Amino acid sequence: MYRRSIRLGSKCGPTSAGPLDLDVEVTGVVDNHTGGAWGGRIPMGLSVWLRTGGIDIAVCSIRTQLIERDSLTGLGIDLDGKRLIVVKSSNHYQTGFRPGSDALWHVNSPGALPSDFSSLPYTKRDTNYYPRVQNPWAEDGTPPTILFGGKTVTAN
Rank of each mutant, 00 (worst) to 15 (best):
K82V: 09
T64I: 05
R3C: 13
S16R: 02
T34C: 10
R83V: 03
H106I: 00
K124F: 10
L50A: 10
Y2T: 00
T142H: 03
I62L: 15
I57S: 00
G54E: 10
G81C: 01
L46E: 11
Y2I: 04
P19Q: 02
P136S: 10
C60E: 02
L104P: 06
R125N: 12
L84P: 00
S90D: 08
L75G: 08
D126L: 05
T95G: 09
S119I: 00
G54H: 03
P136R: 04
Q94T: 08
R132M: 07
G81N: 02
G36N: 14
S89T: 05
L46R: 15
G149P: 03
S90I: 01
T52A: 15
G53A: 13
V87E: 00
I67P: 01
V107E: 01
W49D: 02
S71I: 02
S118Q: 10
P136C: 07
D31M: 10
G13C: 02
N156I: 02
D70G: 06
Y2W: 15
I77Y: 07
I6P: 04
V107K: 03
S118E: 10
D31W: 01
S47P: 07
D23I: 08
P19R: 05
I6L: 15
F148R: 14
I42T: 05
R4V: 06
G150R: 13
Y130K: 00
N32D: 15
G35E: 05
N91Y: 11
D23C: 03
S90W: 08
S61I: 06
P19C: 10
T52M: 08
G35V: 04
H106A: 14
G36S: 08
G18N: 09
I6D: 06
A103C: 10
V87D: 07
I77H: 04
S5Q: 09
G39K: 01
L75M: 05
K11Q: 07
D70S: 03
R132L: 15
R63L: 04
Q134S: 12
E68I: 00
S16F: 11
F148K: 11
I62W: 12
P143E: 02
S16D: 14
P136I: 06
D56G: 14
G81W: 06
K11T: 14
T73K: 04
L50W: 06
A37C: 12
G76L: 07
G13T: 10
C60I: 01
P110V: 13
L84I: 09
L50D: 02
K82I: 03
R7S: 13
P143K: 13
T73S: 15
S61K: 07
D102V: 04
G9T: 03
S5T: 01
S109Q: 06
Q65G: 00
A103D: 04
W137N: 08
W49V: 02
A103T: 01
S10D: 14
A37S: 14
P43C: 01
L79D: 11
P110K: 14
L50V: 08
R83N: 01
G76Y: 12
T152V: 15
G45Y: 11
D116E: 08
G28Q: 05
G54F: 13
I146M: 02
I62S: 07
T64Y: 02
